[in-house]
Design a protein around this nucleic acid. Structure first.
Lengths: 206, 206
DNA sequence: TTGACTTTTGTCAGTTAGTGACATTATAAT
DNA sequence: ATTATAATGTCACTAACTGACAAAAGTCAA
C-alpha cells in the first residue's frame, strides 16, 4: 500500500504500472462514490454499490478506504495535513505569543487557499456532511486531530515555554475560526473569498 | 416511550409502575455498560454483552439507547441541553454584543457546574472518549449540535440584529473554551475548579 | 377480580460495515 | 522464463442496527 522497499520505478523515477493502476483505481472509486452519493444519497449508497460501480469486490474497496466516511472526507484530512506541513516549513521565529499567532494564522490561510483551489469538490462533500451526522462527526474528529497535531508541533518548537492549556486554546480558536468561515463560505456556494473571511474571523478573535 | 396520553400516575402525580421500571432499567443498562467498559474495554464490550448483563434482549437495548455511544455520552448531551435551557431562562437583556457574551459565559459556567456535580461519572466517560475515535467524534458532534442550538436561541432573541456568522463565531469560541477547559480539568483528575478554569479561558479570549 | 386496552418485550429475519485468512492473479526483477 | 512480491477475490465471520409481529406485562374501568 505504501512505498515499496526498493525501486518499482524506471530510471526517471516514474512510478511503475502497479503504482499507476492503484492511483487510478483510488481515483475511480472516489469518483464513482461521489456520483452515487449525489444520485441516490449517501446513506442509500452501500459499499457494495460503490464496488460494483468500479467492478471490484467490496473487500478491495476496504483496501483503498477504511470507511465510507473516508472516501468523502479524505481530501479534507489531506488539506489539514498540508496545513500542518506548511506550518512545519515556517521559520521557527522566536515562538513568542505573537509569533505563534502569526504562524497559526498563516497556516489557516494556507488551508483556506487549498480549499479554494478545490471548491467544487468540497462544496459537494460539505453538503453531504451537513446532512449526515456520522459524516459531520467524522469531520469534526478530523479537525480535532489536526488541532492536536498543530499543538504538538508548536509545543515542541517552543520547547515547553508555553503552558499547554493556553496553547491548546489558541490553536483551537484558530481552528474554530477556520471552521466557521468555511461553513459560511460553503453555505454561500463557495463563491466568495475564503481567505478574506478567515482573516476577518481571526481578526474578530482580537 | 414518551408520556402517555392520559394518567398512568396516581393522584399525587407519581409515575406508575411501568414508568418506574423503565427508568430503573435504563439506569441498570447504563451502569452495567459502564462496568463492562471499565472491565474489558469499550470496544471489547458488545451490545450483546450489555444486554446479557441486565438480562434483556439486544433488541430491547436499542429501545433504550440508539447506540453504544449514547450510553456513554447521553449525560454529556443532557448537560449541554441543560445549559441551553439555562440560557433560555436568562433575562433577555438588551441583546447587545456585551449582553450576549455575558449570557453565554453564564451558560458555560452553568454547564461547568453540572460537570463538577458529576465528576466521577464524567471522568470515566471521558477516559473512554479519549481513546476511542468513534466516541470522540460522537462527542464533538454533540458539541456542534449544542453550538447550533445556542446560536438559534440567541439569534431568535436578538431578532436578527446580529449577523449570523459573527454570532456563530462568538458561540463557537465559547464552546471551545469550555471544551479545552474540560479536557484539562479531566486530564488532571477532575479535582480542580472547573468553573475557575472556564473563566480563565474565557478571559483569555478577551 | 375480571376483562378490555395499551405498552413493553422477545424472537426472528434481514441489511450493512468492517476484518482476517488464504488461494489466485498480476506485476516486477533477475 | 522464473522467481518473488504485491494486489485481488472469495469465504467466513463479528457486530451494529432495523422492521415486523406475536407474547407478556401493566393499566384502568366496571
Amino acid at each position: 500500500m505504501s512505498d515499496t522497499a526498493i525501486s518499482e520505478q524506471d530510471q526517471a523515477g516514474r512510478p511503475g504500472l502497479r503504482e499507476r493502476k492503484k492511483r487510478l483505481l483510488q481515483e475511480a472509486i472516489e469518483q464513482a462514490a461521489l456520483k452515487l452519493f449525489l444520485q441516490r444519497g449517501y446513506e442509500q449508497t452501500s459499499i457494495q454499490d460503490i464496488a460494483e460501480a468500479v467492478m471490484i469486490s467490496p473487500r478491495t474497496f476496504f483496501r483503498y478506504f477504511p470507511s465510507k466516511e473516508e472516501v468523502l472526507l479524505g481530501p479534507t484530512r489531506a488539506v489539514m495535513r498540508a496545513g500542518l506541513e506548511y506550518l512545519r516549513t515556517l521559520p521557527k521565529g522566536q515562538s513568542e505569543d505573537e509569533a505563534t499567532s502569526m504562524a497559526l494564522r498563516a497556516a489557516m490561510l494556507h488551508i483556506a487557499h487549498l480549499y479554494q483551489q478545490q471548491r467544487h469538490s468540497f462544496l459537494l462533500r460539505y453538503q453531504i456532511a451537513r446532512q449526515i451526522p456520522s459524516v459531520a462527526a467524522f469531520y469534526l474528529y478530523a479537525l480535532l486531530e489536526a488541532e492536536t497535531a498543530f499543538c504538538d508541533l508548536l509545543q515542541e518548537r517552543a520547547g515547553g515555554a508555553r503552558e499547554y492549556g493556553q496553547l491548546r486554546l489558541l490553536v483551537a480558536t484558530h481552528v474554530v475560526a477556520l471552521r466557521v468561515a468555511l461553513e459560511r463560505w460553503l453555505d454561500e456556494g463557495a463563491e466568495g473569498d475564503l481567505q478574506a473571511l478567515v482573516t476577518s474571523y481571526l481578526e474578530e478573535l482580537h
